[in-house]
Amino acid sequence: MTGLLSSSNFQWVLTSAVLLGMAAGMVGTMANLRKQGLMSDAISHAALPGVILAFLISGEKQLPVLITGAAISGLIAAFFIQSIKRTTRIKEDAAMGIILSVFFGGGIMLLSIANRVGGGSQSGLDRFIFGQAASMVRMDAYIMGALAVVVMLLIFVSFKEWKVVLFDPRHAKMMGIPVRLYSSLYTLLLVLVIVIGIQAVGVILMAAMLIIPAISSRYWTHSLFTVFVLSAVFGGVSGGIGTLISSSGSNLPTGPFIVVTSSLIFLLSLFFGTKKGLLFRGEKLHANRRYLKQGGDHK
């Protein structure tokens, strides 16, 4: 085991998982505040047709090309979800379900064509569905590192603005903050984290990386800043522990272990969290409910 810990492949995977966990934790906090946790699930599924179209059109399996495709189709999906919600009586969750399944269905159609035309399986397109953390190398660690830094900078440099925008967009508008710019930036960050993350943990578990650390952290503090920091910590720790467990034996998938670790942290927070944990609730329950309503409701 000690030999494994000092090996470079393990360290690349560990570093990538920790950094991805941190980036996802922070962006997930924003998504959670906007009650858009499942948006990440929708976008990660919707990225599939973009990946495969990019492959079919360019004929290349270069990662930047595929990721660009994924990002474009993810952004289109996010836009569609918003417009369905805005222009029809259909609720956001149904809109997400529609876009998610229809885009993914289209992706499967294209994948079947790509596999037949040839080179589909060789280019490893299906790792965009299930992810494969074990084969990450130094470059992946660098990419995850850059991602984490970009996310951190964007959030903390204009933290005050984000705070108002996330909690009360109307008030933010009155204060003269370019809310639309921040909203687009938020969507962009979300899509970026997702498309970079899915090749590590896969389409389905990407949502977990974004959602779980973010809700766990809210059981420990009322300050938004600390929520962000804690989410990053929880995300990073889950990434690290998940990688450690999955390298203890052969044929163990990394992504699912990260998610299960993350869920355990969540359960601990739910019961023992000092702010809203079930054990510390007592008479504060009502005050907390009120806080939740204020905090969660952005309309």
Partner: peptide, 13 residues
């Protein structure tokens, strides 16, 4: 949505 997200990803994992 967060509750759904936690539950299904964990059980799936």
């Amino acid at each position: 949505d967060a509750a759904i997200g936690v539950v299904f990803t964990t059980l799936f994992s």
